[in-house]
Amino acid sequence: MSIWEYANPKKFMQTSAWALPWVMGLAVLSLVAGLIWGFFFTPDDFRQGSTVKIIYLHVPAAMMAINAWVMMLVTSLIWLVRRHHVSALAAKAAAPVGLTFTVIALVTGALWGQPMWGTWWAWDPRLTSFLILTLFYMGYIALWEAIENPDTAADLTAVLCLVGSVFALLSRYAVLFWNQGLHQGASLSLDKEENVADVFWFPLLVCIGGFVLLFVALVLMRTRTEIRARRLQALLARERLA
C-alpha cells in the first residue's frame, strides 16, 4: 500500500474523520498538561523571574510558524509534481494556522521583551524575520482568495510558495547581515550542554508536542472543510452548465 492512497479525497476524508478526534484530544491533553506543568510547577528563573514562563507559548509557536511554511512548501511541491488536489488544499488550509502561530510568537515575544529588554519591539534579526514571514503568509493567503478558479489558484499559490521560500531564506540572511541583534541564540538543540535546564526543558517538550498535534488537528479539520467546499463548487459549476 502506498502513501499516495491518502491523496485520494475519499480515502483522506475517511481516514481523517477517524483520526481527527484522537489528534485533537491528544493535542488538548498535552497542551493542558504541558502548560500547567510549565506555569505552576517549575521554579522562577534567577535572572528573569516568572516572565521566563512565557517560553512555553513563545518557543512552540515560533517553531510551528516556520514548520507550517515548510509543510506548505512540501505540499505545494507535491501538488505541482503529482497533481493531488488534497495536497494543494492542505497547503491552503495550513496558511492561516501558520499565520496565527506567527502572530502568537510575535505577541508573546513582545510581552517577554518588554520586561527583559525594556522594549516591546526591537529591529532584531529574529523579530524582523518573523515580521517578514507574516507578510509572506498574508500575500499567500491573499492570492488564494483573489483567484476564482480553484486549480488556477492552487498552481499560482504553489509557484508563489516556492519562490517565496527562496526569498524568505534570503531575507533571513539579509536581515542578519543588516543587524546583529539582542535575541538569544536558539534555546534548544540536541547538544545537551547548551540547552536550558532540564527542569524547564521537559515541560517545554510537552508543550512543543502539544503545538505540533494542535497544528496537525487544525490542518486536518480545515483541509476537510476545503475538500467539501471544493466539491460543492464542482457541483454548482456542473449544475450551471446543465
Partner: peptide, 9 residues
C-alpha cells in the same frame, strides 16, 4: 467522473 465526485461516492 471528477476527482471530487469520487470523494463522496
Amino acid at each position: 467522473i471528477g476527482q471530487f465526485d469520487e470523494a463522496f461516492g
